[in-house]
Design a protein around this nucleic acid. Structure first.
Length: 259
DNA sequence: ATGGTTGTTCCACAA
């Protein structure tokens, strides 16, 4: 038996419902983490998901951000927001327990432009994610960090590293903090399975024909705790939804683990 | 160096 877990930055849940439902009906994930809902809790289409047998945990926000977890198995202990900064108003983090595994759905700040307050906010957010990760490791909880990290981990995760050199998604400060989280003992699910495969991306800009030219970046990730790494079966990127009409600029990443 | 696109909201901003 396997558990199929997916993560997808949908770039507006209301604009993307046909695409999301279509993908759910074919891919049939047990758990889907979504980011960039661009909707408040009241605007989230609960019924469409409940009709398909999913339980919900939603942390929305007007206009921007917003994250949700939907699951075929019951969802427990929902926590909203990433601890460590009481002044953070942005809905970018939701955590819940499903069958004794902790699922952390995150939408990490983009951080551009790097000379604005947005970049230090991104770095500060990464520090808080580091602290939460360390805490869960200390507790011995099996967990999965999944979502849009807005981080290109390495050259092979980017069609043109020089073009992105000074971008907040590729800046060394961002990548060093991402690495320090990994170095606590987590495993990048996609990269551990596809060690020598480049040009596997999860995001293609809407602009300048990025999708048809495969000018993409890999910024959506699953990072697993050691217990989940031991249960991992497979991790892949499903490029199909990116080619559909009215697509999100991101495509789903899928992680399968032993039940 | 610029412009290219999409979504939400209100005529700009975020990505």
């Amino acid at each position: 038996m396997t558990i199929k877990i997916a993560s997808w930055n949908v770039n507006s849940i209301r604009a993307r419902m046909p695409n999301v439902l279509n993908w759910l009906d074919t891919a049939k994930p047990d758990i889907l983490m979504m980011q960039e809902l661009k909707a408040q809790n009241e605007q989230f289409p609960n019924e469409e998901f409940e009709k398909r047998g999913y339980h919900l945990a939603v942390h929305g926000q007007k206009s921007w951000n917003g994250v949700a977890i939907i699951s075929k198995e019951p969802i427990e202990n929902v926590t909203i927001g990433l601890s460590g900064n009481d002044n953070d108003e942005q809905s970018r983090y939701i955590e819940a327990t499903i069958n004794d595994v902790q699922y952390c759905c995150l939408y990490l700040p983009n951080g551009n432009p790097v000379d604005s307050e947005k970049y230090p906010y991104k770095l500060e957010w990464l520090d808080r994610l580091y602290n939460r990760t360390k805490e869960m490791l200390a507790n011995g909880t099996p967990f999965v960090l999944g979502g849009d990290f807005n981080i290109i981990p390495a050259n092979e995760d980017c069609y043109d590293p020089t073009a992105w050199a000074d971008d907040a998604l590729f800046r060394l400060d961002s990548r060093r903090k991402f690495r320090s989280i990994l170095n606590l003992g987590l495993t990048d699910a996609f990269r551990v399975e596809h060690r020598d495969i480049a040009e596997s991306y999860t995001f293609w800009d809407y602009q300048a024909g990025a999708w048809p030219q495969n000018k993409g970046i890999r910024i959506d990730h699953f990072l697993m705790s050691p217990q989940i790494t031991d249960r991992m079966l497979h991790c892949s990127i499903d490029k199909q939804p990116r080619g559909e009409e009215k697509a999100s600029d991101h495509t789903p990443i899928i992680l399968e683990i032993k039940k």
